[in-house]
Design a protein around this nucleic acid. Structure first.
Length: 570
DNA sequence: CCCCCCCC
C-alpha cells in the first residue's frame, strides 16, 4: 500500500477529491518547511482526518527487519528493537535559519545495540507518543546507517524514515528480553563500546574536583570525573556540564551503583574504555565507607572482592627487577613477588620507583592501596602497586607453614562463565568443556632462556639464564558446537603427557617419540576436559586459537551430579 | 602499565 492507496482510502472514506487531498498534503509539507516528503505528509493528513494509516505505515516497511549487527555504513535499513535509552529532544538553528530538532535514543535487538538519531519535528515528536517509552518495542523504517565520529554505527531517522511504535509483524526472536539496566551490572573488565548503555557498581577510588574550562569558541564549560574500581578492573567516569551536579553527594571510598552510562574509548589509549554520565544516569550509594585507607584486608578477602586495598604479608617469592617497554613507548621497571598471609597468597607487581631493591624472601611488608583485579592473561586476581600506593616494612609475623609453589597456587574461583567453542569470538579468556579429537603427531622443541622462557635468539635479558628445553604441543579441540586449535606450552604439555620436556626430547632423539605419541593419543582422545585459556585470533588459521592456561580432566560423575543439581533447581 | 614462550 503506497501513497496512491492511502489517497484512494481518504477519497472513499472522507468523500474528498484528489485535488483537495493534494492541497492538504502540500500544506503539510509547507508547514514542516519542506522537512517532510509527500509520503510523510500524507500520514499526517490521514491522521488528522481520523483515518487508520497503520497499513500505510506498514507498507513503508519495504524490506524485512535487519539485525543490528548486520548493518553496514551507508545502507538504508529497517530495524526493530527494544528502547533501552531515550535522551532529550535537542533543538538547534539550522544554517538556513529554520529550527531543527534531534532526539537520540538507543535500540537493542538480540544481536546488539545501536544509537538512533531522530531528526526534525516530524520524527522527534514521537517523544509525545505514549508508546515511545523505555522498554517498548519500536521499528525504524528506512533509516540511514552512518558511521559516527567515534567509529560506531548510528541509524539516522530523517524525512524518508518512520518510527513505528507498537509495530506489527515483529519477529519476536529479534527482540531481547527486557534488560533492566538499572539492576544489570556490567563488570568493569567487560565494558564494551557495543553496550551503548550500561550500569556499573564499584568503589570510588578517586574523586576529581569539578573543573571549569574554556572551549575554543570562548564559551565556558565544566567537567567532573571519578575513578571507580570493582573486582575486575578500574575505569574513569566523566560528567559534563550540568551532569556535574550528580556527584555533589558522592565521596571517595563509597561503594556506589551508577546507571545508564555511555562507554567511550579513552582519548589516549584507544584500547581502554571510559564512561560518560548521561542525563538518565543515577548514582545510588550502596555502602558509605569501605575503609579503603585504614583497614588491612586479608588476602583471601581481597582476592574475593578486588579493588583497592591494603595487604600485609610475608614475601614468599620475589623476582628480579625487570626493565620493560610499555605499549605507549615509555620504559619503566617492574618487580613481581608472591605475598602471603595466613589466609592466602597473591601475586603482586610493584611498578617504577615503588620498587625497593632491598626486599627479599621472608621479609614482612605492608602494601597500601594496591589494586587487586583479574589479570586478563591468567584470569587470576593479582595485585598491582603503582603511583597511588605505598610499600613499607612490617613487624608482623605470619604463621604460613610450608611455602607453596607457584604452580600449585589455587586456581581462581571459576568466575569465567563456561562457553561453547562456537562462542569464542574475541581476544579474551575462555573456559569450555571439550575433547581432544586428533592424534598428536608432532611436538616442537626449542632452546630457551630459563629466565624469560624466550627462544635464545629472542631473549633480551641483561644476563641470560640457563639454556633449557621447552616445547609446544598443538591440539584440535572439539565440543560439538565447533572445533578450535589449542596450544599447550611446556608446563601444560608436561602435565598432559605426564612426562618431562627433557625426557620427551630424548625420546625424539632415540626415535621413540612417534610410538609414545601414538599411545598417548589413544589414551587421551575422547576424554573430556575443562580447558581454559586466552583466545587469540590467528591470521595463519583465519580463526581463533586458544592458548591453554589450565586444564583438568573432567570427572564425569561429578559433572553429571552438577547437571542433576541444575535440573533440580529448575 | 607486563602478559611471555612458539608451532601450524
Amino acid at each position: 500500500m503506497g501513497i496512491e492507496n492511502t489517497i484512494q482510502k481518504i477519497m472513499e472514506e472522507k468523500k474528498l477529491s484528489r485535488e483537495e487531498i493534494k492541497n492538504l498534503i502540500d500544506k503539510q509539507i509547507e508547514d514542516f518547511s519542506g522537512l517532510i516528503d509527500e509520503e510523510g505528509a500524507i500520514v499526517i493528513v490521514a491522521k488528522e482526518l481520523g483515518i487508520d494509516v497503520k497499513a500505510h505505515q506498514e507498507s513503508a516497511k519495504m524490506e524485512s527487519d535487519q539485525l543490528i549487527t548486520n548493518l553496514k555504513p551507508r545502507m538504508n535499513a529497517s530495524i526493530v528493537g527494544r528502547i533501552v535509552e531515550i535522551s532529550e529532544v535537542k533543538t538547534f538553528n539550522k544554517k538556513d535559519g529554520s529550527k531543527g530538532s534531534l532526539l537520540p535514543f538507543i535500540l537493542e535487538d538480540t544481536s546488539g545495540m545501536i544509537r538512533c538519531l531522530a531528526w526534525d519535528d516530524f520524527n522527534t515528536q514521537i517523544i509525545t507518543d505514549n508508546n515511545f517509552r523505555l522498554n517498548e518495542i519500536v521499528r525504524i523504517v528506512n533509516g540511514f546507517v552512518k558511521q559516527s565520529q567515534v567509529g560506531s554505527l548510528e541509524i539516522h531517522i530523517g524525512s524518508k524514515s518512520r518510527i513505528q511504535t507498537q509495530p506489527d509483524e515483529v519477529d519476536r526472536t529479534l527482540i531481547p528480553a527486557i534488560n533492566h539496566s538499572e539492576t544489570k551490572i556490567t563488570p568493569i573488565n567487560q565494558l564494551s563500546l557495543k553496550k551503548l548503555t550500561l550500569s556499573i557498581e564499584g568503589v570510588i577510588t578517586t574523586l576529581y574536583p569539578t573543573k571549569k574550562f574554556t572551549r575554543k569558541n570562548g564559551t565556558e564549560g565544566k567537567r567532573a570525573s571519578l575513578q571507580i574500581s570493582d573486582s575486575t578492573g578500574l575505569t574513569y567516569l566523566t560528567f559534563w556540564g550540568d551532569h556535574c551536579e550528580m556527584i555533589k553527594d558522592i565521596k571517595e571510598d563509597q561503594k556506589v551503583r551508577i546507571t545508564k552510562l555511555s562507554p567511550k574509548s579513552n582519548y589516549r589509549d584507544k584500547t581502554k574504555i571510559d564512561l560518560t554520565a548521561t542525563s538518565n544516569t543515577k548514582i545510588t550509594i550502596i555502602e558509605e565507607e569501605t575503609h579503603l585507607e585504614n583497614s588491612i584486608k586479608s588476602i583471601e578477602n581481597l582476592l574475593e572482592i578486588g579493588g583497592f586495598g591494603n595487604i600485609e604479608g610475608i614475601i614468599q617469592e620475589i623476582g628480579d627487577q625487570k626493565s620493560i617497554q610499555l605499549k605507549n613507548g615509555e620504559s619503566t621497571k617492574l618487580q613481581k613477588m608472591v605475598l602471603a598471609d595466613e589466609t592466602g597468597e597473591i601475586i603482586v607487581t610493584i611498578w617504577g620507583d615503588k620498587i625497593n631493591p632491598d626486599l627479599k624472601v621472608d621479609d614482612s611488608i605492608l602494601i597500601k592501596k594496591a589494586l587487586v583485579k583479574i589479570n586478563s592473561y591468567s584470569n587470576e586476581m593479582e595485585a598491582s602497586l603503582s603511583t597511588r600506593g605505598s610499600i613499607e616494612r612490617s613487624e608482623k609475623t605470619f604463621n604460613i607453614g610450608e611455602r607453596s609453589k607457584t604452580l600449585e597456587r589455587t586456581p581462581p574461583n571459576s568466575t569465567t562463565e563456561r562457553k561453547k567453542i562456537e562462542d569464542i569470538n574475541q581476544d579474551d579468556f575462555y573456559e569450555f568443556k571439550g575433547s581432544i579429537i586428533q592424534e598428536i603427531k608432532r611436538i616442537f622443541f626449542y632452546i630457551a632462556c630459563s629466565k624469560c622462557n624466550r627462544k635464545i635468539d629472542n631473549c633480551k635479558c641483561d644476563q641470560q639464564g640457563d639454556h633449557v628445553n621447552r616445547m609446544i604441543l598443538n591440539l584440535i579441540l572439539d565440543d560439538e558446537s565447533s572445533t578450535i586449535r589449542g596450544t599447550m606450552m611446556t608446563k601444560n604439555a608436561e602435565l598432559l603427557l605426564n612426562e618431562s620436556t627433557d625426557n620427551i626430547k630424548k625420546m625424539e632423539e632415540n626415535g621413540e617419540l612417534e610410538e609414545f605419541l601414538k599411545n598417548k593419543s589413544l589414551e587421551l582422545i575422547g576424554k573430556e576436559f575443562i580447558f581454559s585459556g586466552k583466545a587469540k585470533f590467528s591470521e595463519y588459521n583465519d580463526n581463533y586459537e586458544i592458548n591453554i592456561a589450565r586444564f583438568k580432566e573432567l570427572d564425569s560423575e561429578l559433572e553429571a551430579q552438577n547437571i542433576i543439581d541444575i535440573l533440580d533447581d529448575i
